[in-house]
Design a protein around this nucleic acid. Structure first.
Length: 584
DNA sequence: CAGCCTTTCTG
DNA sequence: AGAAAGGCT
Protein backbone atom coordinates (compact mmCIF):
# COMPACT_ATOMS: atom_id res chain seq x y z
CA UNK A 1 0.00 0.00 0.00
CA UNK A 2 1.41 3.27 -1.02
CA UNK A 3 1.55 6.13 1.34
CA UNK A 4 0.53 9.15 -0.60
CA UNK A 5 -2.70 10.99 -0.64
CA UNK A 6 -3.83 9.65 -3.96
CA UNK A 7 -3.15 6.00 -3.51
CA UNK A 8 -4.06 6.23 0.12
CA UNK A 9 -7.49 7.43 -0.80
CA UNK A 10 -7.72 4.98 -3.63
CA UNK A 11 -6.86 2.05 -1.42
CA UNK A 12 -9.15 3.27 1.25
CA UNK A 13 -12.13 3.53 -1.08
CA UNK A 14 -11.40 0.19 -2.60
CA UNK A 15 -11.40 -1.34 0.83
CA UNK A 16 -14.65 0.33 1.71
CA UNK A 17 -16.32 -0.89 -1.43
CA UNK A 18 -15.14 -4.43 -1.01
CA UNK A 19 -16.02 -4.52 2.64
CA UNK A 20 -19.48 -3.29 1.78
CA UNK A 21 -19.76 -6.29 -0.51
CA UNK A 22 -18.94 -8.50 2.43
CA UNK A 23 -15.42 -9.24 1.28
CA UNK A 24 -12.68 -9.42 3.86
CA UNK A 25 -9.88 -7.10 2.89
CA UNK A 26 -6.36 -7.14 4.19
CA UNK A 27 -3.70 -4.79 2.98
CA UNK A 28 0.02 -5.36 3.03
CA UNK A 29 2.91 -3.07 2.56
CA UNK A 30 4.77 -4.03 -0.55
CA UNK A 31 5.96 -0.65 -1.67
CA UNK A 32 8.18 0.32 1.21
CA UNK A 33 10.88 -1.18 3.33
CA UNK A 34 9.35 0.21 6.49
CA UNK A 35 6.02 1.80 7.15
CA UNK A 36 6.47 5.55 7.39
CA UNK A 37 5.35 5.72 10.98
CA UNK A 38 7.91 3.17 12.06
CA UNK A 39 10.87 5.35 11.21
CA UNK A 40 11.14 8.15 13.73
CA UNK A 41 13.90 9.94 15.58
CA UNK A 42 14.77 9.56 19.24
CA UNK A 43 11.92 11.83 20.25
CA UNK A 44 9.51 9.83 18.20
CA UNK A 45 9.24 12.59 15.61
CA UNK A 46 9.42 12.07 11.86
CA UNK A 47 12.72 12.95 10.24
CA UNK A 48 12.91 16.04 8.12
CA UNK A 49 16.21 15.29 6.50
CA UNK A 50 17.21 12.45 4.32
CA UNK A 51 20.55 11.45 5.78
CA UNK A 52 19.37 10.80 9.32
CA UNK A 53 16.25 9.15 7.97
CA UNK A 54 18.24 6.74 5.88
CA UNK A 55 20.70 6.04 8.65
CA UNK A 56 17.84 5.11 10.87
CA UNK A 57 16.37 2.86 8.19
CA UNK A 58 19.67 1.07 7.87
CA UNK A 59 20.03 0.64 11.59
CA UNK A 60 16.51 -0.40 12.42
CA UNK A 61 16.41 -3.19 14.98
CA UNK A 62 14.65 -5.43 12.49
CA UNK A 63 15.18 -5.93 8.80
CA UNK A 64 12.53 -5.03 6.31
CA UNK A 65 10.31 -8.06 5.95
CA UNK A 66 11.19 -10.31 3.08
CA UNK A 67 8.86 -10.05 0.13
CA UNK A 68 5.96 -12.43 0.27
CA UNK A 69 5.97 -15.39 -2.04
CA UNK A 70 3.35 -15.45 -4.73
CA UNK A 71 0.21 -17.31 -3.74
CA UNK A 72 0.28 -21.02 -4.50
CA UNK A 73 -3.01 -20.87 -6.14
CA UNK A 74 -5.50 -18.22 -7.01
CA UNK A 75 -9.10 -19.25 -6.95
CA UNK A 76 -10.61 -17.18 -9.62
CA UNK A 77 -14.16 -16.13 -9.14
CA UNK A 78 -16.76 -16.06 -11.80
CA UNK A 79 -15.10 -14.11 -14.56
CA UNK A 80 -18.29 -13.65 -16.47
CA UNK A 81 -19.31 -11.24 -13.77
CA UNK A 82 -16.56 -8.89 -14.82
CA UNK A 83 -17.58 -6.25 -17.29
CA UNK A 84 -14.58 -6.71 -19.47
CA UNK A 85 -15.53 -3.99 -21.94
CA UNK A 86 -14.80 -1.43 -19.32
CA UNK A 87 -11.22 -2.46 -19.00
CA UNK A 88 -9.47 -0.32 -21.51
CA UNK A 89 -5.77 -0.67 -21.34
CA UNK A 90 -4.89 1.31 -24.38
CA UNK A 91 -6.92 3.77 -26.27
CA UNK A 92 -6.39 4.74 -29.85
CA UNK A 93 -4.43 7.86 -29.11
CA UNK A 94 -1.94 5.97 -27.01
CA UNK A 95 -1.14 3.21 -29.40
CA UNK A 96 1.68 4.93 -31.20
CA UNK A 97 3.53 5.97 -28.13
CA UNK A 98 2.97 2.65 -26.46
CA UNK A 99 4.45 0.81 -29.39
CA UNK A 100 7.42 3.04 -29.17
CA UNK A 101 7.92 2.68 -25.47
CA UNK A 102 7.62 -1.05 -25.65
CA UNK A 103 10.83 -1.08 -27.58
CA UNK A 104 12.83 0.43 -24.81
CA UNK A 105 11.10 -1.15 -21.90
CA UNK A 106 9.35 -4.45 -21.54
CA UNK A 107 6.74 -4.49 -18.85
CA UNK A 108 5.77 -7.43 -16.71
CA UNK A 109 7.18 -8.91 -13.54
CA UNK A 110 9.22 -11.51 -15.36
CA UNK A 111 11.03 -8.82 -17.24
CA UNK A 112 11.39 -6.86 -14.07
CA UNK A 113 13.05 -9.87 -12.56
CA UNK A 114 15.34 -10.22 -15.52
CA UNK A 115 16.29 -6.59 -15.32
CA UNK A 116 17.08 -6.96 -11.65
CA UNK A 117 19.25 -10.01 -12.15
CA UNK A 118 21.05 -8.37 -15.01
CA UNK A 119 21.76 -5.34 -12.92
CA UNK A 120 22.94 -7.28 -9.90
CA UNK A 121 25.33 -9.34 -11.97
CA UNK A 122 26.44 -6.52 -14.18
CA UNK A 123 26.48 -2.79 -13.62
CA UNK A 124 25.96 -2.87 -9.85
CA UNK A 125 29.58 -3.67 -9.07
CA UNK A 126 30.81 -0.63 -10.97
CA UNK A 127 27.94 1.60 -10.00
CA UNK A 128 30.09 3.79 -7.80
CA UNK A 129 32.46 4.50 -10.65
CA UNK A 130 30.06 4.69 -13.56
CA UNK A 131 27.15 6.51 -12.11
CA UNK A 132 28.56 9.80 -13.30
CA UNK A 133 28.18 8.89 -16.93
CA UNK A 134 25.29 10.49 -18.67
CA UNK A 135 24.25 7.45 -20.62
CA UNK A 136 22.13 4.90 -18.92
CA UNK A 137 24.40 1.88 -19.26
CA UNK A 138 25.36 2.15 -15.63
CA UNK A 139 21.96 2.61 -14.06
CA UNK A 140 19.61 -0.11 -12.95
CA UNK A 141 16.66 0.86 -15.14
CA UNK A 142 14.47 -0.63 -12.49
CA UNK A 143 12.43 2.43 -11.66
CA UNK A 144 9.55 1.77 -14.06
CA UNK A 145 9.26 -1.75 -12.71
CA UNK A 146 9.34 -0.49 -9.16
CA UNK A 147 6.86 2.19 -9.94
CA UNK A 148 4.33 -0.15 -11.44
CA UNK A 149 4.72 -2.65 -8.66
CA UNK A 150 6.25 -5.34 -10.82
CA UNK A 151 9.19 -5.58 -8.55
CA UNK A 152 9.29 -5.50 -4.79
CA UNK A 153 11.62 -2.93 -3.38
CA UNK A 154 12.22 -5.35 -0.53
CA UNK A 155 13.48 -7.94 -2.90
CA UNK A 156 15.85 -5.43 -4.41
CA UNK A 157 16.99 -4.39 -0.98
CA UNK A 158 17.69 -7.89 0.24
CA UNK A 159 19.46 -9.03 -2.87
CA UNK A 160 21.67 -5.98 -3.00
CA UNK A 161 22.55 -6.41 0.63
CA UNK A 162 23.54 -9.99 0.02
CA UNK A 163 25.76 -8.91 -2.82
CA UNK A 164 27.22 -6.31 -0.56
CA UNK A 165 28.02 -8.88 2.07
CA UNK A 166 29.77 -11.08 -0.43
CA UNK A 167 31.83 -8.23 -1.83
CA UNK A 168 32.62 -7.00 1.61
CA UNK A 169 34.03 -10.40 2.53
CA UNK A 170 36.06 -10.41 -0.62
CA UNK A 171 37.47 -7.05 0.26
CA UNK A 172 36.08 -5.52 -2.91
CA UNK A 173 35.62 -2.06 -1.56
CA UNK A 174 34.54 -0.38 -4.76
CA UNK A 175 31.76 -2.89 -5.26
CA UNK A 176 30.73 -2.64 -1.64
CA UNK A 177 30.58 1.11 -1.96
CA UNK A 178 28.50 0.64 -5.09
CA UNK A 179 25.93 -1.22 -3.05
CA UNK A 180 25.84 1.50 -0.45
CA UNK A 181 25.29 4.11 -3.11
CA UNK A 182 22.67 2.15 -4.94
CA UNK A 183 20.81 1.40 -1.74
CA UNK A 184 20.96 5.06 -1.01
CA UNK A 185 18.96 5.76 -4.12
CA UNK A 186 16.49 3.12 -3.06
CA UNK A 187 16.45 5.07 0.19
CA UNK A 188 15.61 8.26 -1.65
CA UNK A 189 12.66 6.57 -3.19
CA UNK A 190 11.64 5.40 0.25
CA UNK A 191 12.14 8.89 1.60
CA UNK A 192 9.90 10.35 -1.08
CA UNK A 193 7.06 8.20 0.20
CA UNK A 194 7.95 9.08 3.73
CA UNK A 195 7.78 12.78 2.97
CA UNK A 196 4.52 12.46 1.11
CA UNK A 197 3.07 10.63 4.03
CA UNK A 198 4.13 13.23 6.53
CA UNK A 199 3.40 16.12 4.22
CA UNK A 200 0.62 15.08 1.90
CA UNK A 201 0.81 18.19 -0.21
CA UNK A 202 4.49 17.92 -0.97
CA UNK A 203 3.72 17.54 -4.63
CA UNK A 204 1.95 20.86 -4.61
CA UNK A 205 3.58 23.13 -2.13
CA UNK A 206 7.15 23.79 -1.14
CA UNK A 207 7.95 22.32 2.21
CA UNK A 208 9.89 25.34 3.27
CA UNK A 209 7.32 28.06 3.60
CA UNK A 210 9.46 30.95 2.39
CA UNK A 211 9.68 29.38 -1.05
CA UNK A 212 6.02 30.19 -1.50
CA UNK A 213 7.05 33.78 -1.92
CA UNK A 214 9.49 33.18 -4.70
CA UNK A 215 8.52 35.23 -7.74
CA UNK A 216 8.56 32.65 -10.46
CA UNK A 217 8.92 33.73 -14.03
CA UNK A 218 5.69 32.86 -15.72
CA UNK A 219 6.84 32.52 -19.27
CA UNK A 220 5.39 29.82 -21.41
CA UNK A 221 7.84 30.49 -24.19
CA UNK A 222 10.72 29.60 -21.92
CA UNK A 223 8.81 26.54 -20.90
CA UNK A 224 8.32 25.54 -24.49
CA UNK A 225 11.92 26.09 -25.45
CA UNK A 226 13.05 24.02 -22.51
CA UNK A 227 10.76 21.20 -23.51
CA UNK A 228 11.99 21.29 -27.07
CA UNK A 229 15.59 21.20 -26.02
CA UNK A 230 16.45 24.50 -27.62
CA UNK A 231 17.91 26.43 -24.74
CA UNK A 232 21.32 26.75 -26.34
CA UNK A 233 23.00 24.79 -23.57
CA UNK A 234 23.99 21.50 -25.17
CA UNK A 235 23.79 19.27 -22.13
CA UNK A 236 20.37 20.58 -21.17
CA UNK A 237 19.11 20.29 -24.72
CA UNK A 238 20.48 16.80 -25.16
CA UNK A 239 18.73 15.73 -21.99
CA UNK A 240 15.43 17.24 -22.98
CA UNK A 241 15.58 15.58 -26.34
CA UNK A 242 16.42 12.24 -24.87
CA UNK A 243 13.53 12.62 -22.48
CA UNK A 244 11.22 13.44 -25.33
CA UNK A 245 12.39 10.59 -27.47
CA UNK A 246 12.68 7.84 -24.91
CA UNK A 247 10.80 8.73 -21.77
CA UNK A 248 13.99 8.17 -19.89
CA UNK A 249 16.73 10.27 -18.38
CA UNK A 250 19.74 9.48 -16.32
CA UNK A 251 19.43 10.66 -12.77
CA UNK A 252 22.20 13.20 -13.15
CA UNK A 253 20.69 14.68 -16.25
CA UNK A 254 17.37 15.01 -14.51
CA UNK A 255 19.15 17.16 -12.00
CA UNK A 256 20.80 19.19 -14.75
CA UNK A 257 17.65 19.94 -16.70
CA UNK A 258 15.47 20.61 -13.69
CA UNK A 259 18.07 22.76 -12.05
CA UNK A 260 18.36 24.77 -15.24
CA UNK A 261 14.60 25.05 -15.32
CA UNK A 262 14.33 26.36 -11.81
CA UNK A 263 17.45 28.45 -11.47
CA UNK A 264 18.28 29.77 -14.88
CA UNK A 265 14.82 30.05 -16.34
CA UNK A 266 13.17 30.43 -12.95
CA UNK A 267 10.02 28.82 -14.15
CA UNK A 268 7.61 27.47 -11.54
CA UNK A 269 8.93 24.10 -10.54
CA UNK A 270 5.59 22.39 -10.79
CA UNK A 271 5.44 23.04 -14.51
CA UNK A 272 8.57 21.03 -14.83
CA UNK A 273 7.24 18.39 -12.55
CA UNK A 274 4.11 18.13 -14.64
CA UNK A 275 6.20 17.72 -17.77
CA UNK A 276 8.21 14.97 -16.14
CA UNK A 277 4.97 13.36 -15.20
CA UNK A 278 3.83 13.47 -18.80
CA UNK A 279 7.01 12.19 -20.34
CA UNK A 280 8.91 9.97 -17.96
CA UNK A 281 8.34 6.25 -18.16
CA UNK A 282 8.95 5.98 -14.47
CA UNK A 283 7.03 9.13 -13.63
CA UNK A 284 6.31 8.92 -9.98
CA UNK A 285 4.48 11.48 -7.97
CA UNK A 286 6.43 11.08 -4.78
CA UNK A 287 9.89 10.71 -6.25
CA UNK A 288 9.43 13.59 -8.61
CA UNK A 289 7.99 15.82 -5.95
CA UNK A 290 11.00 15.07 -3.80
CA UNK A 291 13.35 15.67 -6.69
CA UNK A 292 11.88 19.00 -7.68
CA UNK A 293 11.63 20.19 -4.13
CA UNK A 294 15.21 19.24 -3.64
CA UNK A 295 16.27 21.21 -6.69
CA UNK A 296 14.12 24.16 -5.75
CA UNK A 297 15.76 24.38 -2.39
CA UNK A 298 12.50 23.92 -0.59
CA UNK A 299 13.67 21.08 1.59
CA UNK A 300 15.66 21.54 4.76
CA UNK A 301 18.44 19.50 3.21
CA UNK A 302 18.00 20.49 -0.38
CA UNK A 303 20.57 22.38 -2.32
CA UNK A 304 20.57 26.11 -2.00
CA UNK A 305 18.43 27.89 -4.48
CA UNK A 306 21.04 30.55 -5.09
CA UNK A 307 23.59 28.13 -6.41
CA UNK A 308 23.36 27.94 -10.17
CA UNK A 309 24.86 24.86 -11.71
CA UNK A 310 26.81 25.61 -14.81
CA UNK A 311 25.69 23.32 -17.64
CA UNK A 312 29.01 23.81 -19.36
CA UNK A 313 31.02 22.43 -16.44
CA UNK A 314 28.53 19.72 -15.79
CA UNK A 315 28.75 18.82 -19.43
CA UNK A 316 32.45 18.12 -19.18
CA UNK A 317 31.85 16.25 -15.96
CA UNK A 318 29.10 13.91 -17.10
CA UNK A 319 29.83 13.82 -20.78
CA UNK A 320 33.55 14.53 -21.09
CA UNK A 321 33.83 13.50 -24.72
CA UNK A 322 30.58 15.01 -25.85
CA UNK A 323 29.19 11.70 -27.01
CA UNK A 324 25.91 12.20 -25.26
CA UNK A 325 25.43 15.63 -26.73
CA UNK A 326 26.34 14.44 -30.21
CA UNK A 327 23.91 11.57 -29.99
CA UNK A 328 20.97 13.77 -29.12
CA UNK A 329 21.88 16.97 -30.89
CA UNK A 330 22.91 15.99 -34.38
CA UNK A 331 23.35 19.65 -35.27
CA UNK A 332 26.39 19.71 -33.03
CA UNK A 333 27.80 16.38 -34.07
CA UNK A 334 30.76 17.84 -35.89
CA UNK A 335 31.80 20.25 -33.22
CA UNK A 336 35.09 19.35 -31.53
CA UNK A 337 34.89 18.24 -27.92
CA UNK A 338 36.69 21.36 -26.85
CA UNK A 339 33.62 23.42 -27.74
CA UNK A 340 30.85 20.89 -27.55
CA UNK A 341 29.52 22.14 -24.24
CA UNK A 342 29.93 25.82 -24.98
CA UNK A 343 29.50 26.42 -28.68
CA UNK A 344 28.90 30.10 -28.09
CA UNK A 345 32.59 30.50 -27.28
CA UNK A 346 33.79 28.70 -30.36
CA UNK A 347 35.63 30.66 -33.05
CA UNK A 348 33.61 31.34 -36.14
CA UNK A 349 35.90 29.21 -38.23
CA UNK A 350 35.34 26.21 -36.00
CA UNK A 351 31.61 26.69 -36.13
CA UNK A 352 31.69 27.04 -39.87
CA UNK A 353 33.69 23.89 -40.25
CA UNK A 354 31.16 22.10 -38.11
CA UNK A 355 28.29 23.45 -40.15
CA UNK A 356 26.84 25.40 -37.27
CA UNK A 357 25.36 28.80 -37.41
CA UNK A 358 24.42 29.85 -33.94
CA UNK A 359 21.03 31.40 -33.78
CA UNK A 360 19.74 29.50 -36.76
CA UNK A 361 21.15 26.01 -36.72
CA UNK A 362 21.43 25.79 -33.05
CA UNK A 363 20.23 28.47 -30.67
CA UNK A 364 22.33 30.87 -28.70
CA UNK A 365 21.90 30.54 -24.95
CA UNK A 366 18.36 31.48 -24.07
CA UNK A 367 19.57 33.24 -20.94
CA UNK A 368 23.16 33.96 -20.05
CA UNK A 369 24.26 32.64 -16.73
CA UNK A 370 25.39 36.00 -15.39
CA UNK A 371 22.02 37.49 -16.16
CA UNK A 372 20.36 34.51 -14.59
CA UNK A 373 22.42 34.92 -11.46
CA UNK A 374 21.54 38.56 -11.16
CA UNK A 375 17.86 37.87 -11.66
CA UNK A 376 18.00 35.06 -9.17
CA UNK A 377 19.47 37.37 -6.55
CA UNK A 378 16.72 39.88 -7.17
CA UNK A 379 14.08 37.25 -6.98
CA UNK A 380 15.49 35.90 -3.75
CA UNK A 381 15.58 39.23 -2.04
CA UNK A 382 12.07 39.87 -3.20
CA UNK A 383 11.10 36.52 -1.79
CA UNK A 384 12.56 37.35 1.61
CA UNK A 385 10.91 40.75 1.65
CA UNK A 386 7.56 39.22 0.90
CA UNK A 387 8.14 36.59 3.48
CA UNK A 388 9.00 39.16 6.09
CA UNK A 389 6.01 41.25 5.15
CA UNK A 390 3.80 38.25 5.44
CA UNK A 391 5.16 37.45 8.83
CA UNK A 392 4.62 41.00 9.99
CA UNK A 393 1.05 40.87 8.81
CA UNK A 394 0.61 37.63 10.61
CA UNK A 395 1.82 39.14 13.83
CA UNK A 396 -0.43 42.13 13.41
CA UNK A 397 -3.27 39.80 12.78
CA UNK A 398 -2.51 38.07 16.02
CA UNK A 399 -2.48 41.33 17.95
CA UNK A 400 -5.48 42.97 16.41
CA UNK A 401 -7.63 40.02 15.81
CA UNK A 402 -8.50 39.27 12.25
CA UNK A 403 -8.18 41.27 9.10
CA UNK A 404 -5.10 39.91 7.42
CA UNK A 405 -6.26 40.09 3.87
CA UNK A 406 -2.77 40.42 2.50
CA UNK A 407 -1.48 37.29 4.07
CA UNK A 408 -2.52 34.72 1.56
CA UNK A 409 -2.67 35.15 -2.17
CA UNK A 410 -6.17 35.34 -3.56
CA UNK A 411 -7.79 32.06 -2.79
CA UNK A 412 -9.88 31.77 -5.86
CA UNK A 413 -9.49 33.44 -9.16
CA UNK A 414 -11.17 32.93 -12.46
CA UNK A 415 -8.89 30.56 -14.24
CA UNK A 416 -9.36 31.80 -17.77
CA UNK A 417 -9.11 35.39 -16.79
CA UNK A 418 -5.99 34.84 -14.81
CA UNK A 419 -4.44 33.05 -17.68
CA UNK A 420 -5.16 35.91 -20.01
CA UNK A 421 -3.70 38.42 -17.66
CA UNK A 422 -0.59 36.39 -17.33
CA UNK A 423 -0.11 36.09 -21.01
CA UNK A 424 -0.35 39.74 -21.81
CA UNK A 425 3.20 40.70 -20.98
CA UNK A 426 4.74 37.88 -22.90
CA UNK A 427 2.53 38.54 -25.84
CA UNK A 428 2.62 42.19 -26.52
CA UNK A 429 5.23 44.25 -24.79
CA UNK A 430 8.47 42.76 -25.88
CA UNK A 431 10.54 45.03 -23.74
CA UNK A 432 9.31 43.96 -20.34
CA UNK A 433 8.34 40.35 -20.61
CA UNK A 434 11.22 39.01 -18.60
CA UNK A 435 10.03 40.85 -15.59
CA UNK A 436 6.64 39.26 -15.66
CA UNK A 437 6.72 37.42 -12.44
CA UNK A 438 4.14 35.91 -10.26
CA UNK A 439 4.73 35.07 -6.75
CA UNK A 440 1.72 32.84 -6.49
CA UNK A 441 3.12 29.43 -6.78
CA UNK A 442 -0.45 28.41 -7.27
CA UNK A 443 -0.25 29.38 -10.88
CA UNK A 444 1.03 26.02 -11.74
CA UNK A 445 -0.28 22.81 -13.08
CA UNK A 446 -1.28 20.12 -10.74
CA UNK A 447 -2.11 16.55 -11.28
CA UNK A 448 -4.78 16.43 -8.67
CA UNK A 449 -6.76 19.47 -9.55
CA UNK A 450 -6.64 18.69 -13.20
CA UNK A 451 -8.17 15.38 -12.34
CA UNK A 452 -10.75 17.23 -10.43
CA UNK A 453 -11.47 19.28 -13.45
CA UNK A 454 -11.72 16.23 -15.57
CA UNK A 455 -14.27 14.93 -13.19
CA UNK A 456 -16.46 17.96 -13.28
CA UNK A 457 -16.17 18.97 -16.87
CA UNK A 458 -16.59 15.41 -17.91
CA UNK A 459 -15.83 14.51 -21.43
CA UNK A 460 -15.56 17.98 -22.87
CA UNK A 461 -11.84 17.85 -23.30
CA UNK A 462 -11.04 14.75 -21.40
CA UNK A 463 -11.47 12.80 -24.54
CA UNK A 464 -8.02 13.90 -25.41
CA UNK A 465 -6.91 13.24 -21.89
CA UNK A 466 -4.25 15.83 -21.47
CA UNK A 467 -3.50 14.54 -18.04
CA UNK A 468 -2.70 11.02 -18.90
CA UNK A 469 0.45 9.66 -20.33
CA UNK A 470 -0.99 9.65 -23.78
CA UNK A 471 1.19 12.52 -24.70
CA UNK A 472 4.40 10.64 -24.46
CA UNK A 473 5.98 11.33 -27.79
CA UNK A 474 4.41 9.84 -30.73
CA UNK A 475 7.25 9.56 -33.07
CA UNK A 476 10.23 9.28 -30.98
CA UNK A 477 12.62 9.04 -33.76
CA UNK A 478 14.37 12.17 -33.34
CA UNK A 479 13.95 14.13 -36.48
CA UNK A 480 16.46 16.86 -36.70
CA UNK A 481 15.16 18.00 -40.01
CA UNK A 482 11.80 19.03 -38.71
CA UNK A 483 13.45 20.59 -35.78
CA UNK A 484 15.89 22.47 -37.88
CA UNK A 485 13.21 24.06 -40.01
CA UNK A 486 11.64 25.12 -36.82
CA UNK A 487 14.88 26.59 -35.65
CA UNK A 488 15.40 28.57 -38.77
CA UNK A 489 11.93 29.98 -38.65
CA UNK A 490 12.35 31.03 -35.12
CA UNK A 491 15.67 32.67 -35.31
CA UNK A 492 15.69 35.04 -38.19
CA UNK A 493 18.24 37.72 -37.99
CA UNK A 494 20.61 38.47 -35.18
CA UNK A 495 19.29 37.93 -31.73
CA UNK A 496 18.62 41.18 -29.97
CA UNK A 497 19.46 41.30 -26.35
CA UNK A 498 17.59 42.75 -23.49
CA UNK A 499 19.09 42.71 -20.05
CA UNK A 500 21.71 40.34 -21.18
CA UNK A 501 19.11 37.92 -22.33
CA UNK A 502 19.03 36.70 -25.85
CA UNK A 503 15.64 37.47 -27.18
CA UNK A 504 15.80 35.41 -30.29
CA UNK A 505 13.26 32.75 -30.84
CA UNK A 506 11.28 33.63 -27.81
CA UNK A 507 8.74 36.09 -28.97
CA UNK A 508 8.45 34.86 -32.44
CA UNK A 509 7.03 31.66 -31.17
CA UNK A 510 3.37 31.31 -31.81
CA UNK A 511 1.53 31.98 -28.63
CA UNK A 512 0.31 28.95 -26.81
CA UNK A 513 -3.23 28.16 -27.66
CA UNK A 514 -5.94 28.68 -25.19
CA UNK A 515 -6.71 25.83 -23.01
CA UNK A 516 -9.83 24.78 -24.82
CA UNK A 517 -7.83 24.18 -27.90
CA UNK A 518 -4.79 22.61 -26.49
CA UNK A 519 -5.23 18.93 -26.90
CA UNK A 520 -3.77 17.93 -30.21
CA UNK A 521 -5.37 15.53 -32.56
CA UNK A 522 -3.53 12.36 -33.22
CA UNK A 523 -2.38 13.40 -36.63
CA UNK A 524 -1.22 16.72 -35.34
CA UNK A 525 0.75 15.10 -32.63
CA UNK A 526 2.50 12.80 -34.98
CA UNK A 527 3.39 15.35 -37.56
CA UNK A 528 5.69 17.78 -35.90
CA UNK A 529 7.36 19.00 -32.80
CA UNK A 530 4.91 21.74 -32.27
CA UNK A 531 2.00 19.43 -32.74
CA UNK A 532 2.43 18.06 -29.32
CA UNK A 533 2.82 21.35 -27.64
CA UNK A 534 -0.76 21.72 -26.64
CA UNK A 535 -0.81 18.50 -24.82
CA UNK A 536 1.48 19.68 -22.14
CA UNK A 537 0.20 23.15 -21.66
CA UNK A 538 -0.54 22.99 -18.02
CA UNK A 539 -3.87 22.88 -16.39
CA UNK A 540 -4.11 25.57 -13.82
CA UNK A 541 -4.84 24.80 -10.29
CA UNK A 542 -6.71 26.64 -7.69
CA UNK A 543 -4.52 27.88 -4.91
CA UNK A 544 -3.74 25.49 -2.18
CA UNK A 545 -5.94 25.98 0.81
CA UNK A 546 -4.91 27.95 3.87
CA UNK A 547 -1.54 29.59 4.29
CA UNK A 548 0.75 28.85 7.14
CA UNK A 549 3.54 30.70 8.73
CA UNK A 550 5.51 27.82 10.10
CA UNK A 551 8.75 27.05 8.45
CA UNK A 552 7.32 23.80 7.37
CA UNK A 553 4.11 23.46 5.55
CA UNK A 554 1.59 22.53 8.14
CA UNK A 555 0.32 19.27 6.90
CA UNK A 556 -0.58 17.32 9.89
CA UNK A 557 1.65 14.38 10.09
CA UNK A 558 -0.22 11.40 11.16
CA UNK A 559 0.34 7.82 11.84
CA UNK A 560 -2.71 6.12 10.62
CA UNK A 561 -4.27 6.42 7.26
CA UNK A 562 -7.64 6.41 8.93
CA UNK A 563 -7.11 9.66 10.71
CA UNK A 564 -5.44 11.14 7.69
CA UNK A 565 -8.66 10.62 5.83
CA UNK A 566 -10.65 12.03 8.70
CA UNK A 567 -8.69 15.18 8.52
CA UNK A 568 -8.60 15.42 4.78
CA UNK A 569 -12.08 14.60 3.70
CA UNK A 570 -11.56 16.74 0.64
CA UNK A 571 -9.16 14.18 -0.67
CA UNK A 572 -12.12 12.23 -1.82
CA UNK A 573 -13.24 15.11 -3.88
CA UNK A 574 -9.89 16.11 -5.18
CA UNK A 575 -8.79 12.84 -6.50
CA UNK A 576 -10.56 10.77 -8.96
CA UNK A 577 -8.42 7.77 -9.01
CA UNK A 578 -10.25 6.01 -11.77
CA UNK A 579 -8.91 8.68 -14.08
CA UNK A 580 -5.53 8.33 -12.60
CA UNK A 581 -5.30 4.60 -12.53
CA UNK A 582 -4.15 4.30 -16.07
CA UNK A 583 -1.19 6.43 -15.38
CA UNK A 584 -0.23 5.30 -11.92
C1' DC B 1 52.81 14.46 11.73
C1' DA B 2 50.74 18.93 11.66
C1' DG B 3 49.39 22.22 8.53
C1' DC B 4 48.16 23.52 4.14
C1' DC B 5 46.56 22.93 -0.39
C1' DT B 6 43.79 20.60 -3.98
C1' DT B 7 40.24 17.86 -5.41
C1' DT B 8 35.85 15.93 -5.12
C1' DC B 9 31.23 15.47 -3.96
C1' DT B 10 27.29 17.08 -2.24
C1' DG B 11 20.23 13.03 -4.73
C1' DA C 1 29.55 27.56 -1.84
C1' DG C 2 31.43 24.51 1.60
C1' DA C 3 32.67 20.48 3.66
C1' DA C 4 35.34 16.47 3.64
C1' DA C 5 38.89 13.80 2.18
C1' DG C 6 43.25 13.06 0.43
C1' DG C 7 47.88 14.44 -0.89
C1' DC C 8 51.95 16.96 -0.32
C1' DT C 9 55.73 19.27 2.13
Amino acid sequence: MKQNPISLVRDHRLKEMLTAEGIVVNSFNADLLYEPWEVVDDEGQPFTMFAPFWNRCLSMPYDPPAPLLPPKKINSGNLSMCPSDDLIFEDESERGSNALLARAWTPGWQNADKALTAFLNGPLADYSVNRKKADSASTSLLSPHLHFGELSVRKVFHLVRMKQLVWSNEGNHAAEESCTLFLRSIGLREYSRYLSFNHPSSHERPLLAHLRFFPWVVNECYFKIWRQGRTGYPLVDAGMRELWATGWLHDRIRVVVSSFFVKVLQLPWRWGMKYFWDTLLDADLESDALGWQYITGSLPDGRELDRIDNPQFEGYKFDPHGEYVRRWIPELARLPTEWIHHPWDAPVSVLQAAGIELGSNYPLPIVELDAAKARLQEALSEMWQLEAASRATMNNGMDEGLGDSSEVPPIEFPQELQMEIDRQPAQATANVPMTARRREDQMVPTMTSSLNRAETEVSADLGNSEDTRAQVPFHAHFEPRVEREDAIQNAEGPAPRINGVHQHNIFQQPQPRRREAVAPSVSEASSSWTGREGAVVPVWSLPAASGHSETFAADEADVSSRSYLDRHPQSHRLMNWSQLSQSL
